[in-house]
Design a protein around this nucleic acid. Structure first.
Length: 482
RNA sequence: GGAGGGGUGGCUGAGCGGUUGAAAGCAGCAGACUUGAAAUCUGCCGUGGGGCUUGUCCUCACCAGGAGUUCGAAUCUCCUCCCCUCCGCCA
């Protein structure tokens, strides 16, 4: 969420930001609602102040009179009663005036809030302007020694590569047919060494962040309340991407007579598409101590994505699937642009180091304005080299292509404002509560990561070489063979 | 699933119809004492919104959330959410 006061003061900045991100929101409408609400509030508050003043004046008298009436009789009592009634009527006309204004304010709020949640965070000035992912800018490339991006896989390695689908099939690492039988399209089953490799890379990535970089590992719920989805900024914009557990709609025959067949729990739940939701939700509605910051969390969680709107895209293999596991890193730091930027670089650096340790060729992309979601000011994607992906050559074999495996977002206070996550800071005698800044980045998502892993480490004999750092997680195995 | 008990400031915890935005304690901040620190003492110390005369200013809201009763609600009533205890079931 953006700061309404900032929007009021500088609407053009937010209009330009939304335009650059290609997000349509009616900012003028929001401003009109805001203006309207404020003037109504000023009126209601003035009236209420007056009412309060009268109450304070007449309250003690009312108490006294009421007591006197109890003791008095006949005419005396009637006289006192009349006096009491008059006192009581004084504030009542103010009350009815206020009662007329309040519903007007209440009527404005739902739409005002809905609009406010839709205003995207403007991209930073140094983010290149562009319409979509094709305008992203490559900023860095890395490959292990002996691998040259300008040459084909065959020229580099001396044999034609198999795609991950072929490797997975030949080495019996996954079973797509049965996955689909069980759970429909975009479903899979990892088998044998496939499952072990999956668990090994996840564990390696978690240990890497924890042991090498001091992140605190925590578990997170993947089934969360709507509040957490809105707070982290995945709702309302990404509602159709999330699985929805409609508990309130559950039909329970035993409860049918009382509640018309609705017998579920009291609120709906949503499956999270990333551990970021759980990690950021941990301190929702909290005021943190400045000394606690920065918080550095890492989790591994199962992620669920409906992939709505992606029909027909990447339907085969392990690339675009409904359920996967991901090691995610999150940093919550002070509201300081320089510090936010520094963490962003570090968090990207961890991923580069991780990919280098596993000898995966990759590149960094500066995402352009049109590719940013509503919540980020800046985003860097990491794409890993996938020899079995991309355009087909004249023999009908893929020529290799980069595929997104990581995404590092810098959000300023956009997310923490929604989550109401603040910290207390002191400057001299004054203490102030400030919304934190937050950042997040993938550490490793599998099985997608298994694609570049298998395809890059395949050998001429069809086996897969395991890089040394991963071997301890595979009981010392140095290769996967049929 | 059944039966009870609760949700009050950063934390603990009083208040149960009338200057209560809220006692007390802890934590925090400032000052005094001290060579320094600790201890002690004194003072300050919730959050959010709105206004303009931008001020050690005015004002409104907030005691889980919502609706109601009342001249007046943290306090009474109803609904919702959440937590806890016991029993049942269960990996």
């Amino acid at each position: 969420m953006i700061d309404l006061r900032q929007l009021r003061e500088n609407p053009d900045r937010f209009k330009a930001g939304a335009k650059a991100k290609n997000i349509h929101v009616d900012i003028d409408r929001l401003l009109a609602f805001d203006e309207n609400r404020r003037s109504l509030m000023t009126r209601a508050e003035g009236l209420r102040a007056e009412q309060k003043r009268l109450e304070k004046e007449s309250g003690p008298q009312i108490g006294k009179l009421a007591g006197a009436i109890k003791k008095a009789t006949g005419d005396e009592a009637a006289k006192l009663q009349a006096e009491l009634d008059e006192l009581k009527t004084k504030p009542s006309h103010l009350k009815s005036e206020i009662a007329a204004i309040e519903p007007q304010i209440a009527a404005l709020e739902p739409e005002l809030n809905a609009l406010l949640l839709q205003i995207p965070l403007p991209p930073d000035a140094d983010v290149p302007v562009g319409a979509g992912s094709e305008a992203n800018v490559e900023i860095k490339r890395w490959a292990p020694r002996g691998f040259d991006f300008t040459k084909s896989f065959e020229a580099n390695r001396g044999f034609k590569p198999k795609t991950h689908q072929e490797l997975v099939k030949d080495l019996k690492l996954a079973d797509f047919e049965r996955g689909v039988k069980l759970a429909g399209t975009r479903s899979y089953i990892l088998t044998g060494m496939g499952m072990r490799l999956h668990m090994a890379v996840l564990r390696y990535a978690t240990d890497f962040m924890t042991d090498k970089h001091g992140f605190t590992p925590i578990s997170v719920p993947v089934l969360v309340r709507e509040e957490a989805m809105v707070g982290t900024g995945f709702f309302p914009a990404g509602r159709e991407q999330a699985y929805h557990i409609a508990e309130t709609q559950r039909r329970n025959p035993d409860a049918a007579d009382e509640k018309g067949g609705v017998g579920g729990a009291s609120h709906d739940l949503y499956l999270t598409g990333t551990g970021e939701v759980g990690l950021m939700g941990v301190h929702m509605n909290e005021i943190l101590d400045e000394a606690q910051l920065p918080l550095r969390y890492v989790t591994v969680s199962t992620c669920f994505r409906r992939e709505a709107g992606a029909a027909g895209k990447d339907t085969a293999g392990l690339y675009r699937i409904h359920q996967f596991d991901k090691v995610e890193q999150v940093v919550i730091c002070k509201a300081d642009e320089a510090e936010s930027r520094a963490w962003h670089k570090k968090m990207i650096g961890y991923v580069e180091e991780l990919l280098q340790s596993l000898e995966i060729p990759h590149r960094l992309l500066q995402c352009c304005t049109g590719d940013l979601g509503p919540k980020n000011a800046d985003m860097i994607d990491v794409e890993s080299w996938m020899p079995g992906r991309g355009e087909l050559d004249k023999d009908g074999r893929p020529q290799g292509a980069f595929g997104e495996t990581h995404s590092a977002s810098r959000l300023y206070d956009y997310q923490c404002r929604r989550l109401n996550m603040r910290y207390r800071t002191r400057s001299g005698e004054k203490t102030e509560t400030v919304f934190c800044h937050s950042l997040n980045n993938t550490v490793l998502a599998s099985p997608r990561f298994i694609i570049p892993f298998l395809e890059n480490h395949q050998q001429a004999d069809g086996s897969i070489r395991i890089p040394a750092p991963l071997r301890p997680y595979l009981n010392g195995a140095d290769s996967i063979r049929a």
